[in-house]
Simulated assay, not measured.
Amino acid sequence: MRALHSITASAIRLTDPELTSRNPLIRKLERFVHLTEEDRAALESVSAQARAVDPHIDLIREGAVPEDAVLVLEGFACRYTHCQNGSRQIIAYLLPGDLCDVDLADLGSMDHAVGTLSRCIIARVPREALVSLIAQHPNIARALRLSKLAEEATARAWIVGLGCRSAQERVTHLFCELLVRMEAVGLVREGWCPLPLTQVDLADTLGLSNVHVNRLLQDLRRRGLILLRGRSLKLLDLEGIRAMAEFSPRYLHAASCDSGELLL
Results as ranks from 00 to 15, higher is better:
Arg61Met: 10
Glu62Asp: 13
Glu62Val: 12
Gly63Tyr: 15
Gly63Met: 14
Ala64Lys: 06
Ala64Cys: 10
Val65Gln: 02
Val70Phe: 06
Glu74Gly: 03
Glu74Thr: 06
Phe76Gln: 02
Arg79Asp: 11
Tyr80Thr: 10
Thr81Ala: 05
His82Gly: 00
Gln84Ser: 11
Asn85Cys: 08
Gly86Cys: 12
Ser87Leu: 07
Ser87Ala: 14
Tyr93Asn: 10
Pro96Glu: 06
Asp98Asn: 11
Cys100His: 12
Cys100Thr: 01
Asp101Cys: 11
Val102Asp: 07
Asp111Ile: 15
Ala113Val: 11
Val114Cys: 06
Leu117Thr: 02
Leu117Ser: 02
Ser118Tyr: 08
Arg119Tyr: 06
Arg119Cys: 03
Cys120Ile: 01
Ile121Asp: 02
Ala123Leu: 02
Arg124Ala: 05
Val125His: 08
Leu133Thr: 00
Leu133Trp: 01
Asn139Ser: 15
Arg142Ser: 12
Arg142Val: 13
Ser147His: 10
Ala150Phe: 00
Glu152Pro: 02
Glu152Ala: 12
Ile159Cys: 07
Ile159His: 14
Gly161Gln: 09
Gly163Cys: 14
Gly163Thr: 14
Gln168Val: 14
Gln168Thr: 09
Val171Ser: 01
Leu174Ser: 10
Phe175Met: 15
Val180Gln: 09
Met182Lys: 06
Glu183Cys: 03
Val185Leu: 10
Val188Lys: 03
Val188Ala: 12
Arg189Thr: 11
Gly191Asp: 04
Gly191Pro: 10
Trp192Arg: 04
Pro194Asn: 11
Leu195Met: 08
Leu197Cys: 13
Gln199Lys: 15
Gln199Glu: 14
